[in-house]
Simulated scan of single mutants.
Amino acid sequence: MKRWPLIPTIFVAGAMLVMIGLGIWQLRRMDEKNALLAEYAAAATKPPIAWPAVPVKHDAPLFRRATGFCTEVTGWSASAGRNAKGEAGWAHIAACRTGGAEGPGMQVDMGWSRDAANPAWTGGEVTGIVAPDTRHIIRLISQTPAPGLEPSQPPAMDDIPNNHLAYAVQWFFFAAVAGVIYALALRRRKQAPGADAQR
């Protein structure tokens, strides 16, 4: 009777447990993300807030209406964007000072155009919707575009990825595949002639 290969079995079982654990963790993350998306969906019914002096990634007020004051435009950037009609073009984002002694200031999407040239807007009070920003955590999508621009497309719930269920299924699948492959390997080992004699 062939002995059970202890070390390989421990290794494969440990790997399977890790993959199953990662799948369970992704399911928990999915529940957390669903709760967060529900909070974002309810943001439209909440009163406006003042622009946060120092945005915090884990508590960003996404999809809330907010108001800030741009005391000075320190720079412009044009990124691919869409207008309220869904047409492709350029979103014009102003980097603003907000008058505070500390903090990163405020990024404001002041509108859309087909031309990447910077608008002539120099600052002032801005009201709009808080949207995610990969570099600055959040930006404000102004409801009133700068002169010569059209309103940019407001942020949508589809901008927030929620792939945790797919990731969980992948980890469970990997664990199942590892188990099947190891079971087949054990079966082949059992059927292999002279396996015991070679040890």
Rank of each mutant, 00 (worst) to 15 (best):
W4D: 08
L6G: 13
I7A: 13
P8A: 06
A15R: 06
L17T: 13
V18F: 10
V18I: 12
M19K: 03
I24M: 13
I24C: 05
W25C: 06
Q26D: 04
L27G: 02
L27E: 05
D31S: 12
N34R: 15
A35Q: 12
A38L: 10
A38Y: 11
Y40P: 04
A43M: 07
A44G: 15
K46L: 12
P48E: 07
P52G: 06
A53E: 12
A53M: 14
A53K: 08
V54K: 10
V56N: 13
P61C: 07
F63M: 08
R64L: 07
C70R: 01
T71P: 10
E72A: 08
V73D: 01
S77I: 09
S79M: 14
K85M: 13
G89Y: 02
I93D: 00
A94V: 01
R97D: 14
G99W: 03
G100E: 12
G100W: 07
A101H: 09
G103A: 07
V108E: 00
G111E: 02
G111C: 05
G111H: 01
W112L: 02
R114S: 10
A116F: 06
P119F: 03
W121L: 00
T122G: 07
E125A: 15
T127P: 03
T127R: 04
A131I: 03
D133N: 13
T134R: 10
H136V: 05
I137Y: 04
L140I: 05
S142H: 01
Q143H: 09
P145M: 01
A146Y: 01
P147A: 09
G148E: 09
E150C: 05
S152D: 04
S152F: 02
S152M: 06
P154V: 03
P154K: 06
D158C: 11
I160T: 05
P161H: 05
N162K: 08
N162I: 02
A166R: 13
A166I: 08
Y167L: 06
A168W: 00
Q170E: 14
W171D: 04
W171Y: 14
F173C: 15
A175H: 05
A176L: 12
I181G: 10
I181A: 15
A185E: 12
L186K: 04
R187K: 09
K190N: 14
A192E: 10
P193E: 03
P193M: 04
G194F: 07
A195N: 13
D196W: 08
D196V: 12
A197K: 15
